[in-house]
């Protein structure tokens, strides 16, 4: 497992390094500690949600409702933060619970009713956004209290709070997928759903968990969202789901399920973040961004497919060759 992962991620890492080097040759402002920190800080929300999306994609699912979930939870968090009795812990709890509930809603429809994930989440994307807009009547949540908005830029022991939160998310997610039965079941389900139920994995439960976890991470992201921007648009997060999915895909998770790693996804997020930042620094007109991002995504997935195909072809000949030699290879 380690070997293969290293290979895939190594290529992505090289790509990131090459892009970064290219940008830093053109603009010296890129390779400065403050700029690098700002790249990280600007993409924390994306990164947190991409962690959850990685698990969703590993099960060969998809969640296009996360943009709506983000807006929904952010507005609720904002409204709660405006209450006089609110404090940071209440806000955290509200964001988390709100996200989890939205995720569970998706999960029940996908796992329980066996409606394909893309269909369910296209539906709930409209349901979440629609009910949010109806409730707020399109009004923004503004004048958030300072104790909330200052969170994004405060530090503990010199480490910015968003980075601490992200680190916790990564640690928890890594622990989950590496050291728990539930986490390994996610990968098992993605690798071979039929076999998964045969070895006693409750596939419905695993799917429900994956979408609930996606919701939980979106909830956490929504807390940071309000804190970062200080005002919350009920349209917040519109089409953000596509950026999240792009990062995960560039990071190497296969749409066919079964593969995808946290490290890969982090690199995917960084590639997107570095490109965006670099283009701004290089004063590339903003409308070129989509062209470059789109191309990177197209190239990444095409190269992946071609590589896999080559590997498969090689393996096939080896397999047959071995069989022809007639020896037990074990």
């Amino acid at each position: 497992m380690r070997n293969w992962l290293k290979k895939r991620e190594f290529v992505m890492l090289m790509m990131l390094v090459v892009i970064s080097l290219g940008i830093s040759l053109i603009t010296p402002a890129f390779l400065t500690p403050s700029n690098l920190l700002s790249i990280v800080m600007n993409n924390i929300i994306l990164a947190i949600m991409a962690m959850g999306m990685t698990l969703v994609v590993v099960t060969s699912g998809i969640d296009v409702s996360v943009g709506s979930q983000l807006g929904f939870a952010a507005i609720f968090v904002g409204l709660v933060a405006l209450l006089p009795t609110a404090n940071i812990f209440i806000v955290l709890a509200v964001g988390l619970v709100c996200g989890v509930l939205l995720g569970i809603f998706n999960g029940i429809l996908i796992a329980g009713a066996e409606i394909p994930a893309i269909v369910v989440t296209v539906g709930t994307m409209n349901v979440f956004r629609g009910s949010l807009l109806l409730y707020t009547n399109g009004k923004w949540v503004t004048s958030l209290p300072a104790w909330y908005t200052s969170m994004y830029n405060s530090s503990v022991l010199g480490v910015p709070i968003p980075i601490i939160i992200f680190a916790v998310v990564v640690a928890v997610t890594y622990y989950l997928i590496q050291y728990t039965r539930l986490g390994r079941s996610v990968y098992a389900l993605g690798g071979n759903p039929v076999a998964a139920s045969r070895v006693g994995i409750n596939t419905d439960k695993v799917l429900l968990f994956v979408f609930a976890y996606m919701g939980a991470l979106t909830g956490i992201a929504s807390i940071l969202y309000g804190a970062q921007l200080a005002t919350i648009d009920p349209n917040a997060g519109t089409s953000f789901e596509l950026t999240v999915i792009s990062a995960v895909v560039i990071g190497g998770a296969s749409a066919l399920g079964g593969s995808g790693s946290l490290l890969g996804t982090c690199i995917g997020v960084l590639i997107l973040g570095v490109l965006q930042n670099g283009m701004i620094l290089m004063r590339v007109e903003p409308y070129w961004q989509d062209v470059v991002m789109g191309l990177i995504l197209i190239i990444a997935v095409s190269v992946d497919v071609l590589n896999n195909r080559k590997k498969e072809a090689q393996k096939k000949t080896i397999d047959v060759a071995k069989a022809i030699k007639g020896g037990v290879s074990a």
């Binding site: 596509l242 895909v249 749409a255 989509d290 991002m293 789109g294 995504l297 997935v301 095409s302 497919v305």
Partner: peptide, 14 residues
């Protein structure tokens, strides 16, 4: 042979 959802996710942006 790129899976349609990924190919068109890319071309959508492109």
């Amino acid at each position: 042979g790129v899976p349609p959802i990924l190919a068109t996710l890319g071309t959508m942006t492109f």
